[in-house]
Each structure stands twice: as C-alpha cells, then as structure tokens.
C-alpha cells in the first residue's frame, strides 16, 4: 500500500512550528515584563489583541466561562489567520483543504454539544431532537450536523475560491505578456517572463488573501463564540 502525503501537511507543520516558537518567545517576554510599568515593544499589540478578544468573548459567553473559552478562541484566530495569509509567501493555504476546516469546525461543534449537554442535561438534550413535534426528528439530527458542515464549507469555499482566482490571474497575465512580447519579437508563447503579474497581482493578493482571509477568520471565530454563547442561559452567564 502506498501512502501519499499531501503538501498541505508540510505547510501545517511549518505554521505550527512558527506559531509555537512565536508563542514560547512571547510568553517568555510577557513573563519577564514588569506588570506595573507601561507595556513596550511587541507586547503592546499582543495585549491589546488579547483584551479585545476577551471582551468579545465576555459579551457573548459571560464573564463566568470567558476564561475557559478565550484561549481556544485566540488560538483559533491566530491559526486560521496565519493559514489564510500563508499563500502570500507562495505556499498553498491549508484552509483550502476541506480536511483542515472540517476538523476545526468539528472541534467547535463538539464544544457546542458539550455546552448544550451541560446546561440542558442529558434528558433535555435528547428531548430537543423531538421539538416542536416528534416527526421533526430526522430534520433535527441533520440540523445538528449542518452547523459543522456549513462552518467548514464556508471557510473552505472562500479560501479555495481566492486561490483559484489568483491562479486564473497568473495564467491570464502570463498569456497577456506572451501576447505583448509576441507583437515585437518571434518568441514562442509560454517562454516569455510573466512581467505583468508583479503589476496586477499585489492588489488582488491584498484582497483575496489578506482581506478575505481576515473576514473569514472573523466570521469563523464570531460564529464559534456566538453559537456557544447562545446555548448558555442568561442567568448562568453571571460570575
């Protein structure tokens, strides 16, 4: 039996190693910093980002469970964003692979189910499949799984679409520069340097990789927080 390894695996390992090193170095720096003095250097944006995420989590999940959920949300945010913008460095995005996004959505889905089980109890959880009428049982089962499928497909579809668009742009500029050079010389098409791509591609890279990647990260993280927060009753949110 032959085992083939997708190239995404190497990119995932690369991202994990880079993030691991960065997190270890940053936590060492934060530990050494004086908590009473003003934060300096790289620590300031990190603290501001963590505080913003913590506040968003507090608004949706409540102060009692925010401490438990914030680390997951921060890791999700950093990991998905780095995966989305790694295509700026010429590598293929791991999030353009359905296995990766399905796994990320599966973790969130398991957290949602655990929250429902915790606050509704096993009886309430099983009874929610039969509401409003018992005939709805198959639809409720599909509805439970559709959260996972739609979350994963949304991220996957957007990033894959951006990658395909960039490939189309590159092949189009290659064709166009071959056409322009072919007007003046007798160079065979396909052998000409793609000189139009550095002119046209950067703006589109900024849109498809940076902007769409940021928005999709925001959407994935916001959906995670909101869907988990919806299952926590209002009176349980207070510390």
């Amino acid at each position: 039996m032959e085992v083939t390894v997708q190239t995404d695996v190497y990119v995932i390992i690369l991202i994990t190693v880079i993030l691991g090193i960065a997190i270890v170095l940053l936590s060492k720096k934060i530990d050494q910093a004086d908590p009473l003095a003003k934060p300096t250097g790289i620590i300031t944006p990190v603290l501001v980002g963590i505080q913003t995420i913590y506040k968003t989590v507090c608004d949706n999940v409540g102060t009692k469970y925010a401490d438990a959920l914030t680390p997951y949300v921060i890791v999700l945010w950093v990991y998905i964003f780095c995966s989305n913008i790694i295509s700026l460095f010429g590598l293929s995005s791991p999030t353009a692979n359905l296995s990766v996004t399905l796994l990320l959505a599966f973790i969130t889905w398991v957290l949602i189910q655990i929250t429902e089980l915790k606050f509704q109890g096993l009886g309430g959880y099983l009874h929610s499949f039969l509401e409003p009428i018992p005939v709805m049982l198959p639809m409720n089962i599909f509805g439970k799984f559709s959260t996972m499928v739609s979350m994963s497909l949304r991220l996957f579809g957007n990033i894959l679409c951006g990658g395909i668009m960039m490939q189309l742009i590159y092949s189009f500029t290659g064709y166009l520069s071959g056409l322009i050079v072919g007007l003046f010389t007798s160079a065979a098409p396909g052998t000409v340097f793609n000189f139009l791509a550095p002119v046209m591609a950067p703006l589109l890279h900024a849109y498809f990789d940076l902007f769409a990647g940021f928005i999709q990260t925001l959407v994935f993280v916001t959906l995670t927080i909101v869907l988990i927060g919806n299952d926590i009753p209002e009176d349980a949110k207070k510390a």
């Binding site: 739609s150 497909l153 949304r154 959407v219 916001t222 959906l223 909101v226």
Partner: peptide, 26 residues
C-alpha cells in the same frame, strides 16, 4: 459593536448559499 457582529453573522450565514453554488461548480 453589537450591530456589527450581528450583521457579520447574518451576512456569513446567507453567504453559505453562494459558497455551496461555487463548490458545486468547482
């Protein structure tokens, strides 16, 4: 801030339909 998060949520949910169409065509 509340309006923005609700809007992003609504837009993301309705965008799923378009993404499904795109996936089918891909």
């Amino acid at each position: 801030s509340k309006i923005r998060s609700t809007m992003i949520l609504g837009i993301a949910l309705s965008e799923t339909v378009a993404i499904y169409g795109l996936l089918v065509s891909i």
